[in-house]
């Protein structure tokens, strides 16, 4: 009896698991299909011209702005995040009040809606520092926004490095600096990379925070002070105007592709580092 009961329970659980997994997959496929079907017909060469006009809503300036945005934001946020994490993990004593404060602040920042960042960025960088709507204001705002993500993942990556390396390094008479930068950090690279990728995803996908800070000018920015729109903002602008919904879908297709490329690159990089640095 018990055996039959167990078989039935097993069967039900298996079916349920399968069912919910299938739903998730279907939703995902539906979204992708929807975007591709609506977007691909509008993908024309002229959408990749270097200037945006009201007749040709080219997304090329937005692609270039996105690249700038990602690159500049990472240049600011990643070193800041990594060094903060190193300080938190390697230098501060456990149970330190100040660290707990930093940590809970970082966690809170991670939960704040991006539009709030946008508002803050606009007031702080746009008005107080007089940057107006500009690439610089956008970059600074996004840097603050992704900092918690970078800190969190880097902390985890550093903590997961076996104490064997640290002990081994110290036992050979190395100082903290050498142990951290020569032994711990290289081993934590795959984890840190994962965090960076996650951050990149957030930058690429961000619109609300950027509308307030970087503005929506659809041209290639010539200086850091110039306003610029990323792909996500471009999409938001096109669909909002209502005249270019098809082009908005086309933009979404390109956005999807970019995310796909980033994720694949992340996986490959992580794999290379893991192969090199696995072990103790």
């Amino acid at each position: 009896m018990a055996k039959i009961m167990r078989k039935i329970t097993d069967g039900i659980l298996f079916a349920a698991t399968w069912f919910f997994a299938a739903i998730t997959l279907l939703v995902l496929l539906f979204i992708i299909a929807h975007i591709v079907i609506n977007g691909v017909p509008y993908l024309e060469p002229r959408l990749f011209e270097f200037t945006f006009t009201s007749e040709n809503v080219s997304m090329m300036p937005a692609i270039i702005s996105t690249v700038f945005m990602v690159f500049l934001t990472l240049i600011i946020a990643v070193p800041l995040g990594i060094f903060t994490s190193i300080y938190l993990v390697e230098y501060v004593k456990k149970g330190n009040k100040f660290v707990m404060l930093i940590r809970s602040a970082a966690e809170m920042l991670a939960g704040i809606p991006s539009v709030v960042y946008g508002l803050f960025g606009m007031l702080m960088f746009g008005q107080f520092f007089g940057l107006g709507w500009s690439l610089a204001a956008g970059v600074l705002t996004l840097s603050i926004m992704i900092l918690p993500v970078v800190i969190r993942t880097t902390e985890e990556a550093l903590k997961s490095v076996g104490d064997g390396y640290r002990e081994g390094g110290y036992a050979l008479g190395s100082g903290k600096l050498r142990v951290v930068f020569r032994l711990v950090l290289p081993s934590a690279v795959p984890g840190i990379m994962a965090g960076v990728i996650l951050a990149m995803g957030r930058i690429v996908g961000e619109s609300a925070a950027l509308i307030f800070t970087a503005g929506t000018v659809p041209q290639i920015p010539q200086t850091l002070g110039a306003s610029a729109r990323t792909l996500s903002v471009h999409m938001w602008a096109l669909s909002g105007e209502g005249h270019h919904v098809g082009e908005a879908y086309a933009t979404a297709v390109i956005l999807l592709l970019i995310v796909l490329v980033i994720n694949t690159a992340a996986a490959v990089i992580a794999k290379i580092f893991t192969a090199k640095g696995s072990g103790a």
Partner: peptide, 29 residues
């Protein structure tokens, strides 16, 4: 302490070679 640990080496329970080449491991100290 650096001098002390140079004089007093230590080998651990779990082999803990550093994630680098054999040469660099030995040349570390």
């Amino acid at each position: 302490i650096t001098q002390l640990r140079k004089n007093v080496g230590m080998v651990f329970q779990k082999p803990n070679p550093f994630p680098m080449s054999i040469y660099d491991n030995i040349a570390f100290a």
